[in-house]
Amino acid sequence: MKKIVIYLYILAITASISACEKVIDIKVANDSGKLVIEGAVTDQAGQTIKLSRNVAFTSTNTYPAVTGATVSVTDQNGKVYAFTEGAAGTYTNAALTGASGQTYQMNVNTGNQTYTATSTMPLKVALDSITSADSDFGGKGKKKITVHFHDPVATADQYNFLLFVNGKQVTRVFTVDDRFTNGNDINFDLRTGNDDNDQAIYAGDNVTVQMQCIDHAVFTYWFSLQQQGTGSGPGGSVSPSNPPTNITPAVFGYFSAQTVQSKTIVVK
């Protein structure tokens, strides 16, 4: 099977990605106090939905929690899973384990307003391995991480990746679809930036990659953040810009039914 190597150059992200997806016009907001919802149902036990409020683009990334909300997820059979608030703004359910092919609806009620979103969990595509090599983009001794997997030919697939270096999440967004690589063996490079928010990778570092198989609406959300070069990975802070959301009425954030899997290596 033909192998495809995908090079992701963050500083030239618009040029490199626009060949795969139309350019999305992103309006950058400098206001504050808007609701942010970060929700996911995975194929692992235990689910989390986080509620917060955004801050101005010029402010520090401290996002006030939204407490006292009523949060639930309903599966396609009509079973409702209530989420309980633990830490401020963090709502969890330990009983729900998602499954590929199933559709889930999130319901959030806060401030006398109900917000809903639906997402269908794709089939899981196996993460074969992750490797490290000398980076051809960056300083001396810097390494890049490459994820290796086989994209199935029968479906349109979208992927999102989280990168952790020595236990700390890199804030770059790494997302890709199979529009031009359907059915191929994929080698996808994850390169960290040179700014203060990202971590360079060197020999001896402990690196973990989480691979998420996501639906198209959620891919569009992450792609738009990747396109503008923001540092907002899932599980981290949401950018104060307004990428396309699958939540109604529209707020910042997303709701994703996704498969997850991880691999860890020591960089050589």
Rank of each mutant, 00 (worst) to 15 (best):
A99L: 13
N107M: 09
Q212D: 07
N109E: 13
A133R: 08
I26K: 13
F188L: 10
L162F: 02
T208Q: 14
V170H: 06
G231N: 14
K140G: 11
M106N: 04
D189R: 00
V266Y: 04
T92L: 03
N109T: 15
D185M: 11
V209P: 06
F255R: 01
C213K: 00
Q47T: 05
K142F: 12
D157W: 01
A257I: 02
T259Y: 03
F188S: 02
N30P: 00
V251F: 01
S262I: 08
A12D: 12
Q212Y: 12
Q210A: 09
T42S: 11
R179K: 12
T58R: 07
G39N: 04
I24V: 15
T97C: 09
D198P: 00
Y159S: 08
G89M: 01
I13M: 12
N109L: 12
A217W: 06
Q227D: 12
P152V: 05
V218W: 03
F252A: 09
A200R: 08
T248S: 13
T192V: 13
G86L: 09
T245P: 05
P243R: 01
Q113W: 01
V238F: 11
T70M: 09
K34V: 10
V260C: 02
H150E: 13
G98P: 04
A88M: 04
T116L: 05
T181A: 15
T97Y: 00
S59Y: 08
K140F: 11
G253N: 06
P64E: 05
T192H: 06
N107T: 10
V36S: 05
F161R: 04
F188D: 05
A12H: 14
W222P: 03
G33Y: 12
T120F: 02
V66G: 02
S16W: 07
A56Q: 07
F174D: 08
T110N: 15
Y91C: 10
T90S: 15
A133M: 10
T92G: 01
T131K: 13
Q228K: 13
Y159L: 09
G111R: 01
S132Q: 00
N187M: 11
Y202K: 14
T120K: 12
S32T: 15
D215I: 03
T230W: 08
K263V: 10
N246I: 04
V170P: 02
L51D: 01
L162K: 09
L190Q: 10
F223D: 10
D215R: 04
R179S: 15
T58E: 02
Q76S: 15
F255T: 02
V207C: 02
G233F: 03
N166C: 10
S18K: 01
S241M: 11
N112R: 06
V170K: 03
T155K: 03
I247W: 04
G167S: 06
S224V: 09
T62N: 06
S262A: 13
P234L: 13
Y91R: 08
P244W: 01
N246K: 05
A29R: 09
D178M: 07
D136Y: 07
K27Q: 14
P249D: 03
V36E: 03
T67L: 06
T146L: 03
C20W: 15
T67E: 10
E38T: 08
G193S: 14
D215K: 06
S132W: 05
T92F: 03
S72F: 01
T42C: 03
T84D: 05
T146R: 07
T116V: 09
T103N: 12
